[in-house]
Amino acid sequence: MKMFSQAFRPVGSNKVDPVLVALWVAFILLAIIWIMPFLFIVFTSLKSNATVMGASAFSPPTELAFGNFVAAWNRGNFSTTAFNGIVITFIKVPLGLFVSAMAAYALAKVPMRMSRALFALFVFGTMLPFQVMLAPIFRQVNAFGLINTYPGIILPYLAFGIPYQVFILYGFFSAVPKELSEAARIDGASHFTIFRRIFLPISLPVLSALLILDFVATWNEFAMALVILQDPRMWTLPLGLMNFQSQFQSDYGQLNAAIIMTVLPAAIVYLMFQRYFVSGMTSGAVKE
Protein backbone atom coordinates (compact mmCIF):
# COMPACT_ATOMS: atom_id res chain seq x y z
CA MET A 1 0.00 0.00 0.00
CA LYS A 2 2.99 2.25 -0.31
CA MET A 3 1.48 3.86 -3.36
CA PHE A 4 -1.38 5.14 -1.26
CA SER A 5 0.69 6.45 1.57
CA GLN A 6 1.18 9.82 -0.04
CA ALA A 7 -2.03 9.86 -2.05
CA PHE A 8 -5.08 12.04 -1.67
CA ARG A 9 -3.15 14.80 0.00
CA PRO A 10 -3.54 18.20 -1.64
CA VAL A 11 -0.53 20.41 -2.15
CA GLY A 12 0.65 21.78 1.14
CA SER A 13 -1.45 19.49 3.30
CA ASN A 14 -0.70 16.30 5.17
CA LYS A 15 -4.25 15.14 5.68
CA VAL A 16 -6.14 12.80 3.40
CA ASP A 17 -8.76 14.85 1.61
CA PRO A 18 -12.15 13.01 1.61
CA VAL A 19 -13.39 15.04 -1.35
CA LEU A 20 -10.42 13.82 -3.34
CA VAL A 21 -11.19 10.21 -2.45
CA ALA A 22 -14.81 10.56 -3.61
CA LEU A 23 -13.64 12.27 -6.76
CA TRP A 24 -11.17 9.52 -7.39
CA VAL A 25 -13.87 6.84 -7.20
CA ALA A 26 -16.09 8.74 -9.64
CA PHE A 27 -13.09 9.15 -11.81
CA ILE A 28 -12.27 5.46 -11.90
CA LEU A 29 -15.85 4.83 -13.03
CA LEU A 30 -15.43 7.31 -15.86
CA ALA A 31 -12.22 5.60 -16.87
CA ILE A 32 -14.03 2.26 -16.97
CA ILE A 33 -16.64 3.75 -19.29
CA TRP A 34 -13.84 5.12 -21.41
CA ILE A 35 -12.20 1.76 -21.84
CA MET A 36 -15.43 -0.15 -22.47
CA PRO A 37 -15.37 0.19 -26.26
CA PHE A 38 -11.95 -1.48 -26.38
CA LEU A 39 -13.15 -4.39 -24.28
CA PHE A 40 -16.23 -4.79 -26.42
CA ILE A 41 -14.16 -4.80 -29.59
CA VAL A 42 -11.71 -7.36 -28.24
CA PHE A 43 -14.55 -9.58 -27.01
CA THR A 44 -16.41 -9.45 -30.31
CA SER A 45 -13.28 -10.10 -32.33
CA LEU A 46 -12.90 -13.44 -30.58
CA LYS A 47 -16.48 -14.61 -31.10
CA SER A 48 -17.97 -16.49 -33.99
CA ASN A 49 -20.81 -14.81 -35.82
CA ALA A 50 -23.32 -17.23 -34.36
CA THR A 51 -22.24 -16.34 -30.83
CA VAL A 52 -22.41 -12.63 -31.58
CA MET A 53 -25.96 -12.95 -32.82
CA GLY A 54 -26.98 -15.40 -30.10
CA ALA A 55 -25.40 -14.49 -26.79
CA SER A 56 -25.55 -11.21 -24.92
CA ALA A 57 -23.45 -8.44 -26.34
CA PHE A 58 -21.02 -7.87 -23.49
CA SER A 59 -20.42 -11.40 -22.35
CA PRO A 60 -16.81 -12.53 -22.72
CA PRO A 61 -16.16 -15.02 -25.51
CA THR A 62 -16.29 -18.63 -24.40
CA GLU A 63 -14.25 -20.30 -27.10
CA LEU A 64 -11.69 -18.05 -28.71
CA ALA A 65 -12.23 -17.67 -32.44
CA PHE A 66 -8.74 -16.58 -33.45
CA GLY A 67 -9.69 -17.59 -36.95
CA ASN A 68 -11.40 -14.20 -37.27
CA PHE A 69 -8.01 -12.53 -37.38
CA VAL A 70 -6.65 -14.80 -40.08
CA ALA A 71 -9.82 -14.47 -42.15
CA ALA A 72 -9.94 -10.69 -41.76
CA TRP A 73 -6.27 -10.39 -42.62
CA ASN A 74 -6.83 -12.21 -45.90
CA ARG A 75 -10.19 -10.76 -46.89
CA GLY A 76 -9.16 -7.24 -45.94
CA ASN A 77 -5.90 -7.45 -47.90
CA PHE A 78 -4.01 -6.39 -44.83
CA SER A 79 -0.62 -7.38 -46.21
CA THR A 80 -1.06 -4.84 -49.00
CA THR A 81 -2.52 -2.02 -46.93
CA ALA A 82 0.01 -2.42 -44.12
CA PHE A 83 2.85 -2.41 -46.63
CA ASN A 84 1.59 0.77 -48.27
CA GLY A 85 1.12 2.40 -44.90
CA ILE A 86 4.71 1.59 -43.99
CA VAL A 87 6.15 2.87 -47.28
CA ILE A 88 4.19 6.12 -47.14
CA THR A 89 4.82 6.79 -43.46
CA PHE A 90 8.49 5.90 -43.53
CA ILE A 91 9.17 8.23 -46.46
CA LYS A 92 6.86 11.07 -45.54
CA VAL A 93 7.65 11.50 -41.86
CA PRO A 94 11.47 11.85 -41.91
CA LEU A 95 11.44 13.77 -45.17
CA GLY A 96 8.85 16.20 -43.90
CA LEU A 97 10.69 16.78 -40.66
CA PHE A 98 13.99 17.42 -42.39
CA VAL A 99 12.48 19.87 -44.87
CA SER A 100 10.55 21.62 -42.10
CA ALA A 101 13.62 21.90 -39.91
CA MET A 102 15.56 23.55 -42.75
CA ALA A 103 12.77 26.01 -43.35
CA ALA A 104 12.30 26.75 -39.67
CA TYR A 105 16.01 27.36 -39.26
CA ALA A 106 16.04 29.75 -42.22
CA LEU A 107 13.07 31.67 -40.89
CA ALA A 108 14.40 31.86 -37.35
CA LYS A 109 18.10 32.40 -37.81
CA VAL A 110 18.83 33.75 -41.28
CA PRO A 111 18.13 37.44 -41.77
CA MET A 112 15.87 37.61 -44.79
CA ARG A 113 13.44 40.13 -46.06
CA MET A 114 9.89 38.80 -45.88
CA SER A 115 10.81 36.20 -43.28
CA ARG A 116 8.03 37.37 -41.01
CA ALA A 117 5.45 37.35 -43.77
CA LEU A 118 6.60 33.90 -44.84
CA PHE A 119 6.34 32.68 -41.28
CA ALA A 120 2.81 34.05 -41.07
CA LEU A 121 2.01 32.20 -44.29
CA PHE A 122 3.15 28.95 -42.69
CA VAL A 123 1.23 29.65 -39.49
CA PHE A 124 -1.86 30.17 -41.58
CA GLY A 125 -1.29 26.71 -43.01
CA THR A 126 -1.32 25.12 -39.57
CA MET A 127 -4.98 26.02 -39.34
CA LEU A 128 -6.04 25.30 -42.88
CA PRO A 129 -8.19 22.18 -42.88
CA PHE A 130 -7.52 20.15 -46.01
CA GLN A 131 -10.80 18.32 -45.57
CA VAL A 132 -12.34 21.48 -46.94
CA MET A 133 -10.72 21.17 -50.32
CA LEU A 134 -10.33 17.54 -51.16
CA ALA A 135 -11.51 18.03 -54.72
CA PRO A 136 -8.99 20.76 -55.66
CA ILE A 137 -6.19 18.78 -54.03
CA PHE A 138 -7.26 15.87 -56.15
CA ARG A 139 -7.22 18.07 -59.25
CA GLN A 140 -3.74 19.32 -58.46
CA VAL A 141 -2.30 15.87 -57.86
CA ASN A 142 -4.03 14.70 -61.00
CA ALA A 143 -2.49 17.55 -62.98
CA PHE A 144 0.90 16.09 -62.09
CA GLY A 145 -0.32 12.64 -63.14
CA LEU A 146 0.27 11.29 -59.65
CA ILE A 147 -3.10 9.77 -58.74
CA ASN A 148 -2.61 6.29 -57.24
CA THR A 149 1.10 6.76 -56.64
CA TYR A 150 3.23 7.12 -53.52
CA PRO A 151 4.48 10.61 -54.47
CA GLY A 152 0.88 11.58 -55.20
CA ILE A 153 -0.12 11.04 -51.59
CA ILE A 154 3.19 11.99 -49.96
CA LEU A 155 3.37 15.46 -51.53
CA PRO A 156 0.03 16.72 -50.18
CA TYR A 157 0.77 15.06 -46.84
CA LEU A 158 3.99 17.05 -46.77
CA ALA A 159 2.23 20.23 -47.79
CA PHE A 160 -0.23 20.00 -44.93
CA GLY A 161 2.26 18.63 -42.39
CA ILE A 162 5.04 21.16 -42.95
CA PRO A 163 3.29 24.24 -41.49
CA TYR A 164 2.80 22.79 -38.02
CA GLN A 165 6.31 21.41 -37.89
CA VAL A 166 7.81 24.67 -39.13
CA PHE A 167 5.79 26.49 -36.50
CA ILE A 168 7.03 24.31 -33.64
CA LEU A 169 10.64 24.18 -34.78
CA TYR A 170 10.67 27.92 -35.40
CA GLY A 171 9.71 28.44 -31.78
CA PHE A 172 12.45 26.09 -30.70
CA PHE A 173 15.18 27.59 -32.90
CA SER A 174 14.21 31.13 -31.94
CA ALA A 175 14.87 30.29 -28.33
CA VAL A 176 18.43 29.13 -29.07
CA PRO A 177 20.86 31.83 -27.87
CA LYS A 178 22.36 33.96 -30.62
CA GLU A 179 25.92 33.31 -29.41
CA LEU A 180 25.78 29.71 -30.49
CA SER A 181 25.33 30.44 -34.18
CA GLU A 182 27.11 33.77 -34.24
CA ALA A 183 30.39 32.21 -33.15
CA ALA A 184 30.19 29.69 -35.92
CA ARG A 185 29.42 32.33 -38.51
CA ILE A 186 32.49 34.29 -37.50
CA ASP A 187 34.50 31.14 -38.07
CA GLY A 188 33.24 31.29 -41.65
CA ALA A 189 30.74 28.45 -41.52
CA SER A 190 27.83 28.66 -43.93
CA HIS A 191 24.22 28.42 -42.78
CA PHE A 192 24.09 24.92 -44.26
CA THR A 193 26.92 23.84 -42.00
CA ILE A 194 25.52 25.56 -38.94
CA PHE A 195 22.16 23.97 -39.51
CA ARG A 196 23.60 20.50 -39.95
CA ARG A 197 26.33 20.64 -37.30
CA ILE A 198 24.67 22.65 -34.56
CA PHE A 199 20.92 23.05 -34.92
CA LEU A 200 19.94 19.64 -36.18
CA PRO A 201 21.68 17.83 -33.27
CA ILE A 202 20.28 20.08 -30.56
CA SER A 203 16.76 19.79 -31.89
CA LEU A 204 16.73 16.00 -31.71
CA PRO A 205 14.36 15.83 -28.71
CA VAL A 206 11.82 18.07 -30.42
CA LEU A 207 12.29 16.22 -33.68
CA SER A 208 11.64 12.86 -32.05
CA ALA A 209 8.50 14.16 -30.42
CA LEU A 210 7.27 15.49 -33.76
CA LEU A 211 8.31 12.25 -35.43
CA ILE A 212 6.14 10.13 -33.18
CA LEU A 213 3.19 12.49 -33.48
CA ASP A 214 3.50 12.68 -37.25
CA PHE A 215 3.90 8.93 -37.53
CA VAL A 216 0.52 8.34 -35.92
CA ALA A 217 -1.18 11.13 -37.87
CA THR A 218 0.13 9.87 -41.21
CA TRP A 219 -0.61 6.26 -40.39
CA ASN A 220 -4.21 7.15 -39.53
CA GLU A 221 -5.00 9.63 -42.29
CA PHE A 222 -8.13 8.81 -44.25
CA ALA A 223 -9.79 11.64 -46.19
CA MET A 224 -6.85 12.58 -48.41
CA ALA A 225 -6.02 8.96 -49.09
CA LEU A 226 -9.66 8.39 -50.02
CA VAL A 227 -9.53 10.80 -52.94
CA ILE A 228 -5.98 10.16 -54.12
CA LEU A 229 -5.50 6.43 -53.65
CA GLN A 230 -8.30 4.93 -55.70
CA ASP A 231 -6.50 1.75 -56.58
CA PRO A 232 -7.03 -0.97 -53.95
CA ARG A 233 -3.42 -2.03 -54.39
CA MET A 234 -2.36 1.42 -53.17
CA TRP A 235 -4.72 1.60 -50.19
CA THR A 236 -3.55 2.29 -46.68
CA LEU A 237 -4.94 0.66 -43.54
CA PRO A 238 -7.76 3.15 -42.88
CA LEU A 239 -9.03 2.77 -46.46
CA GLY A 240 -8.81 -0.99 -46.15
CA LEU A 241 -10.80 -0.89 -42.93
CA MET A 242 -13.47 1.35 -44.43
CA ASN A 243 -13.85 -0.99 -47.37
CA PHE A 244 -13.96 -3.96 -45.04
CA GLN A 245 -16.70 -2.29 -43.06
CA SER A 246 -18.85 -1.55 -46.08
CA GLN A 247 -18.44 -5.08 -47.41
CA PHE A 248 -18.49 -7.27 -44.37
CA GLN A 249 -20.47 -5.24 -41.85
CA SER A 250 -22.41 -8.35 -40.93
CA ASP A 251 -19.35 -10.52 -40.25
CA TYR A 252 -19.11 -9.03 -36.81
CA GLY A 253 -16.24 -11.09 -35.47
CA GLN A 254 -14.02 -10.48 -38.47
CA LEU A 255 -14.92 -6.80 -38.62
CA ASN A 256 -13.75 -6.33 -35.06
CA ALA A 257 -10.61 -8.31 -35.72
CA ALA A 258 -9.95 -5.95 -38.63
CA ILE A 259 -10.43 -2.95 -36.36
CA ILE A 260 -7.91 -4.31 -33.88
CA MET A 261 -5.33 -5.02 -36.56
CA THR A 262 -5.74 -1.49 -37.94
CA VAL A 263 -5.47 0.20 -34.59
CA LEU A 264 -2.73 -1.87 -32.98
CA PRO A 265 0.41 -0.40 -34.60
CA ALA A 266 -0.45 3.16 -33.60
CA ALA A 267 -1.48 2.04 -30.12
CA ILE A 268 1.80 0.22 -29.61
CA VAL A 269 3.82 3.19 -30.80
CA TYR A 270 1.87 5.36 -28.41
CA LEU A 271 2.38 3.09 -25.43
CA MET A 272 6.10 2.89 -26.17
CA PHE A 273 6.68 6.57 -26.67
CA GLN A 274 3.89 8.26 -24.75
CA ARG A 275 6.33 10.69 -23.15
CA TYR A 276 7.02 12.17 -26.57
CA PHE A 277 3.37 12.64 -27.40
CA VAL A 278 2.81 15.05 -24.58
CA SER A 279 5.93 17.06 -25.32
CA GLY A 280 5.26 17.03 -29.06
CA MET A 281 1.77 18.35 -28.65
CA THR A 282 2.43 20.86 -25.97
CA SER A 283 5.77 22.30 -27.03
CA GLY A 284 4.08 24.28 -29.77
CA ALA A 285 0.57 24.78 -28.64
CA VAL A 286 1.12 25.85 -25.08
CA LYS A 287 4.21 27.91 -24.74
CA GLU A 288 5.00 29.34 -21.42
Binding site: F138, N142, G145, I147, N148, V227, Q230, D231
Partner: peptide, 12 residues
Protein backbone atom coordinates in the same frame (compact mmCIF):
# COMPACT_ATOMS: atom_id res chain seq x y z
CA UNK B 1 -18.54 4.88 -59.13
CA UNK B 2 -16.26 7.52 -57.62
CA UNK B 3 -13.14 5.82 -58.94
CA UNK B 4 -14.50 5.67 -62.49
CA UNK B 5 -15.34 9.33 -62.37
CA UNK B 6 -11.81 10.02 -61.29
CA UNK B 7 -10.41 7.75 -63.97
CA UNK B 8 -12.20 9.85 -66.56
CA UNK B 9 -9.73 12.61 -65.87
CA UNK B 10 -6.54 10.68 -65.55
CA UNK B 11 -4.64 8.17 -67.60
CA UNK B 12 -4.89 5.67 -64.77
Amino acid sequence: KAALRVAAQSSQ
